[in-house]
Structures are given as structure tokens and as C-alpha cells.
Design a protein around this nucleic acid. Structure first.
Lengths: 153, 153
DNA sequence: CTTAACCCTCTAGTAAGCTAGAGACTCTAA
DNA sequence: TTAGAGTCTCTAGCTTACTAGAGGGTTAAG
């Protein structure tokens, strides 16, 4: 895991190819400070990345897809990059984040069960029974449940 | 549940007060077609909403907080509003949505367990043991796990 | 009839996260 | 040495979901 060899620096194009993140996006992320510790500049002012930028970009991508903002991701990475460990602050931050994630999971599970309820409702009622009504009662149920849940909050 | 009485229409300000959604946002949502079936216009071109708009707005809010775009929410509501039930199409759409939500839940559970792992790691190592290292090994683990998961996808 | 509180539309601006293009420099291979 | 690929910065534009403000019509109370 520890590399003593002076690993070959990657140019932005190589990083883009390897990570499948567009060059422009890499530049953007760097500008936002998300890649700072993995990049330096050549004499000609080219960005030179170390290989670990690939893990970093992968982490960023995955976190983004879960709804974390670049700012939130940066907070995590900043901690990661600290040599002086601010463990108390960080611990609290992470605990907060865990709680948020937990809430989000619960809300999504609720939404899923609502949607599944709609689907099973469809199985229960033969289409003809539904067609007799003016408004699809299945989705009505979804919305009502949603509202009920909301007002419980 | 079924109201035969010609319920009093709400002006946008009343809706805003009751729903705690800003007027501008309500206008925006209406413009995007999300409120269509609950709104008509007065002679003076005022928006007049029926009470069900409140459920609708609550549903929209909650769905948004789960990461659904207005477009996705509109798709659901459009179905809800159809008198002619396009149940086959809709069923497939909803099934797809259920799958997406399921994936998202799984990814969030993974992220959560990673973050929890970091936290318990902190409990395991007394600070001194960590401080001896150059980089916080806990978050290193998070990132590595994340990357490993990514390449499995 | 006037005034205040509403409402209307329209234009423009904001934030996040990119994406595109111009104009210029750098590096590599023939 | 020169073409071409790669890189740089900078400006500008795009999308989503608002948010603010101007300028003007509407409604209800006094």
C-alpha cells in the first residue's frame, strides 16, 4: 500500500481516460479544492496528478450519486488529508452524517413501500374494477400516505 | 373523503400560508405543470386552487427531499391525474422507480456502514495510536472500500 | 373613491455542477 | 522545425429550482 517508488505522475488527459471523468470536470473539481493533495504543477504549468487521484475521483463520483454535494464530499476529504487528526470534530461530523443517511434510508424505504403498494394494488384489482373510477385509487393511496407521513414529521 | 360540496377555492396566498410553500414556488410548480388539475383561473386571472393542492404540494415536497426531480414527480402525478388508466405503462414505470429506489437504499446503507466503520475504528484506536500515522487510517478505509465497491458495479 | 393588500406577468439573477469554445502555450515525433 | 496533440486560462452558457423586483391590474374596507 505504501509506495516508495517515485510513481509516474499522470497528466490530466490520462486521468480522464482512466477515471472516465471528463477533463473539464477534473479541472472543475480541482478548482473547487477537491483534488488538492494529489496534484502539483509541472514547469510548464501542466497539472500532474499522482495515481491516488483515481481513488479520489471514484469516491467523489460515488458520493455524488448518493446525493452528497461537492461541498460535503470536500469536508470528508479534507479530514482524510489532515495529518493532524481532528478526531473529535470529525467524529461528530460523521455521526451527524450517519444520522442523515439513516433518515434518508428510512424515507426511501417508505417511498418504496408506497410504490410497491401501488403495484400490488394493481394486481389485486382487475383493470375493469379500476376503470370504473374517476381517479386511479392506487396513486391516491400513495399520495395520502405520503401526506400522512409528512404531517407526522 | 369524497366532497360533493363546492368547496371554496383557495387563492395562491392562502395556499402558500397553509402549505408553507412560497408563492413564487407555487407559481413555478404550476408553470411546470405540476399543479394543473387543481388550479383554474378567476375572471380576473387569479389562480384558484382546490384544497387538494395541499396534498399535492406536500407530496411534491417530500418527493423532492428524497431526490426526485420535479420531472419525475410530474410523471407520477400525471398518472394519478389520468382518468383513462394507462396501467401497463405506468406499472412498468413504477417498477423501474422501485428498482432505482432500492439501489439507492443499498448504496446508502453501504455508505452508512462505511461511516460507522470509521467511527468504531476511532473507538478502537486510542488517539495516540492514530496520531503516529501520517494519514488517518480510518478514512483511508472508507475511501478504499468505496473504490472497491465501485469497481464491482 | 381611494388605499392597502392581493394578485398578475415578465425579466433577470442565484447556486451548483458542469460543458463549450477561444486564443495561446508546450511537448513530441518526423 | 514544424505539425499536431495535449494543455493552459478565461469567458460564457446550460440546467434545475428557485427568488427578487418592476410595473401594473384587482378586490375589499372605509
Amino acid at each position: 500500500m505504501i509506495t516508495f517508488a517515485p510513481e509516474k505522475a499522470l497528466q490530466i488527459g490520462e486521468v480522464a481516460a482512466l477515471s472516465e471523468v471528463p477533463i473539464k470536470t477534473i479541472r472543475y473539481d480541482e478548482e473547487q479544492g477537491l483534488l488538492t493533495p494529489t496534484v502539483r504543477r509541472s514547469k510548464a504549468n501542466y497539472r500532474l496528478f499522482e495515481a491516488s487521484v483515481l481513488q479520489r475521483l471514484a469516491f467523489i463520483k460515488r458520493s455524488q450519486s448518493l446525493g452528497l454535494s461537492l461541498r460535503e464530499i470536500q469536508d470528508i476529504l479534507t479530514v482524510h488529508d489532515q495529518v493532524q487528526l481532528p478526531c473529535e470534530d470529525v467524529k461528530q461530523n460523521l455521526q451527524k452524517k450517519v444520522q442523515q443517511v439513516t433518515k434518508q434510508i428510512e424515507a426511501l424505504q417508505l417511498l418504496r413501500s408506497e410504490l410497491q403498494g401501488v403495484l400490488s394494488g394493481w394486481q389485486d384489482h382487475p383493470p375493469a374494477a379500476i376503470a370504473a373510477r374517476t381517479i386511479c385509487p392506487n396513486l391516491e393511496a400513495v399520495i395520502d400516505t405520503a401526506v400522512a407521513q409528512d404531517s407526522n414529521t
